[in-house]
């Protein structure tokens, strides 16, 4: 087994264990901290896949923004530190069976199909190509603009949703 494979297996182990804890731990703050560890390990997987830009974006976006938002809202919606009440619905065994079935089916399919692989090339500098493709009118400028509009709409929408209602209306 090569060093790369060992590194992959360790990272994958971290991902699976912490992801499992995210969905099972009772304390939601702990769950969100486990989520941070999962996301960080996924960023490590991106580094192993030589997608440095995506790894850094993963850290900025998921850890720097989304998980902090999640922790923030967990703190906001909790009056005491301890969690009370059930944290999972009574039908959770059914959910577990379904998740297992989905995993079995997906894993079976993904491993069975003989994916034709491209020859291994050096991809160390994709950032330049990515940047050019984003603003190239013949390639991805329209998806890029649509994404920006989506983000703008999300910004306006979340502000108007979370604003406290005024007394006058």
């Amino acid at each position: 087994m090569s060093a790369q494979q060992i590194v992959f297996l360790v990272t994958a182990g971290v991902i699976v264990i912490s992801a499992a804890l995210v969905v099972t731990v009772r304390n939601l703050i702990h769950a969100s901290l486990w989520l941070v560890i999962t996301l960080f390990a996924v960023a490590a997987i991106y580094v192993q896949l030589e997608a440095d830009f995506l790894a850094v974006v993963q850290v900025i976006l998921y850890i720097g923004a989304i998980s902090i938002l999640i922790i923030f809202s967990v703190m906001l919606t909790r009056r005491v530190m301890a969690d009370t009440g059930p944290q999972r619905i009574p039908q959770w065994p059914l959910a577990a069976v379904l998740a297992l079935l989905v995993f079995g089916g997906l894993a079976y399919l993904l491993v069975q199909v003989p994916w034709p692989l491209a020859p291994n090339v050096d991809v160390s500098d994709t950032v330049l190509a990515l940047g050019e493709a984003f603003v190239d009118p013949n390639r991805y400028v329209i998806p890029f603009e649509v994404a920006t509009v989506l983000l703008l709409v999300a910004l306006v929408g979340s502000i108007s949703l979370a604003l406290p209602e005024r007394e006058s209306d």
């Binding site: 941070v36 850094v56 974006v57 850890i63 902090i68």
Partner: peptide, 11 residues
């Protein structure tokens, strides 16, 4: 990116 983790530490 790495500087943003500091926010998490404070929280």
């Amino acid at each position: 990116a790495i500087g943003g983790i500091g926010t998490l530490a404070i929280m």
